[in-house]
Amino acid sequence: MAGGLPRIHRELVQAYRDLSVEWAAYLDMIGARDTAYKTELDALAGAGRGPGDADFDEVVTQQLDNDSLNRMLCGNLMHTTTAVEVLRNLTPVWVPQAVNDALASIEVSAGDARSLTGIGGSGLFVFSKSPIRARESLPGGATMPEVDVDGVLWWTKTLERGGASAVTADRPRRLMLAPLTRSRDLQWLRGDGWRSSTLTEVTCFDVTTVRGADVPGPLWPCVELLARIGTALQDNILHYTDGSIATLDAA
């Protein structure tokens, strides 16, 4: 896959772009449905039927469900459009298997995400050999397939109002992490945009670079892996060279 990094990069940009179009189309449908609910509620109210009436309350419930779906799709659209912009401005980094071996001896305390600052504000790692596995955590206890993590895309979010200037070297950052997999087990769940991409997004979640970060258990290995890389880069155990990460003793 090392020689295919430019292609993988292009595929990811296209996948997120296609998903943006997909979510926008769904939002148009949701908007039309919301208009229909409002019209129906106005008609019921005009007929003297309001809260407490079975038909009125049923439409209100449907409208609330529609609003919840709208918020979710808006979040999806924001995520995919941001991912496209981030990917356009970065060069993917190859992580050979030797780096996985070097990282094994680096200890990261449970919940300690401070070393994530060492990986930079944004980037894309693609691994020669998957170092970890991950599973998306869903509300209600639904179980998603556990898959190999073959790459991670990340970027910085701001912790407070004030834009990018609010993020400085001496204060915590909030990073959006998107682990990626070569597995096809998730493509049918994550959207049609992933069909033509070598890598598929496993999930996305944010983490603040503090001690005691709140991260779902199945996703902590992803944070721990990047924290190990951040520590190794800060301590000069690893370094960037020719579009990849290498140990200091590597030629």
Rank of each mutant, 00 (worst) to 15 (best):
A142M: 11
M78P: 00
F127L: 13
Y26E: 15
D150T: 03
R195K: 12
K129P: 00
A25Y: 03
A54Y: 03
A110V: 06
R133W: 00
P221G: 06
T241V: 11
H79M: 12
V99Q: 04
G193M: 05
V99F: 06
V207W: 13
G140S: 07
Q14V: 10
L177R: 10
S122G: 01
S183H: 07
S20F: 02
Q234V: 03
M29E: 15
S183D: 10
Y26Q: 14
G141V: 02
Y26G: 03
D235S: 15
P96R: 04
R114W: 00
W155Q: 07
L64A: 13
D185R: 14
L175I: 10
D170I: 11
I106K: 06
D206I: 02
A232V: 02
S244F: 02
W155G: 09
S244C: 12
L233Q: 07
V126E: 02
D206A: 15
A113N: 07
P6M: 10
T231K: 15
P172L: 13
D192Q: 13
D148I: 01
N89K: 15
G4Y: 06
V13T: 05
E40F: 00
L116I: 02
G46N: 13
E40K: 08
H239S: 12
G162D: 05
L87A: 04
D65A: 12
A113V: 06
R135K: 11
V147W: 10
L77H: 10
L5T: 10
L116D: 00
V21N: 06
D192E: 13
K38F: 06
S105K: 14
G120Y: 08
V126G: 01
E224G: 00
L219I: 07
I119F: 02
I106Q: 04
E22L: 06
M176D: 01
L248W: 01
L180S: 01
P216K: 08
T35A: 15
V95H: 02
P96W: 11
A134L: 11
R17P: 00
D28K: 14
L77P: 00
I229S: 05
I119Q: 02
A102V: 01
W154L: 08
M72H: 06
D112Y: 07
L90D: 03
V86G: 03
V93Y: 05
D42Q: 11
G50W: 05
N236Q: 14
G3H: 11
R10K: 12
L175S: 05
S244H: 11
D242L: 06
V223P: 10
T209Q: 09
